[in-house]
Computed example of a mutant assay.
Amino acid sequence: MNKLFISLSILLLPAVVMAQKKDKLATPKVYDLLIGGYTNPDGNVGISVYRFYAETGRTSFLSEVKTASPTFICVSPDRKFVYSVNAIPDGSVSAFSFDYNTGLLKFINKQPSVGRNPAHITIDKEAKNVIVSNYGNGTLSVLPINKDGSLAPATQTIIGEGTSINPQRQAGPHIHSAIFSPDEKHVLYADLGTDKISIAKYKAGKVPALTPEDVAVEKVKPGSGPRIFDFSPDGRFLYLINEMGATVNCYSYEKGKIKFIDSVGLASPGFTGSSSAADVHLTPDGRFLYATNRGTANELVVYSVDQATGKLTNVIRYPTGKEPRNFVIDPSGNFLMLASQLSDSVQIYKIDKLTGILIPINSMISIPTPTVLKLVSAE
Rank of each mutant, 00 (worst) to 15 (best):
L11Q: 01
L13Q: 02
A15K: 00
K22W: 14
K24M: 08
A26G: 01
A26Q: 14
K29H: 15
V30F: 03
L33Q: 06
L34F: 06
Y38P: 04
P41Y: 03
N44K: 08
I47F: 05
I47H: 09
F52D: 13
T59K: 09
F61W: 12
T67S: 12
S69F: 03
P70G: 14
T71N: 09
T71K: 03
S76H: 04
P77D: 12
K80W: 01
V82P: 07
V85Y: 04
A87D: 15
P89G: 10
S92A: 14
D99T: 05
N101G: 01
L105V: 10
N109S: 15
P112M: 07
R116F: 06
N117H: 05
K125T: 13
S141V: 02
P144A: 01
P144E: 02
A154T: 02
T157N: 01
T157S: 08
N166Y: 07
P167S: 14
A171M: 05
H174G: 11
I175V: 15
S181Y: 05
H186M: 05
V187C: 01
L188H: 07
D191H: 11
T194M: 02
K201G: 14
A204N: 03
G205W: 02
A216C: 00
G225Q: 08
D230G: 01
F231Q: 09
F231S: 12
G235C: 09
M244A: 07
M244F: 14
N249H: 07
S274L: 07
S275R: 06
S275A: 11
S275V: 15
V280N: 09
F288T: 06
L289C: 10
G295A: 03
V305E: 08
A308M: 07
T309G: 10
R317P: 00
Y318H: 05
Y318D: 05
P324N: 08
F327H: 13
F327K: 06
G333E: 06
F335W: 15
M337G: 04
S340I: 00
L342K: 14
S343T: 13
K350W: 02
L354F: 12
I359R: 09
T369C: 00
T369E: 11
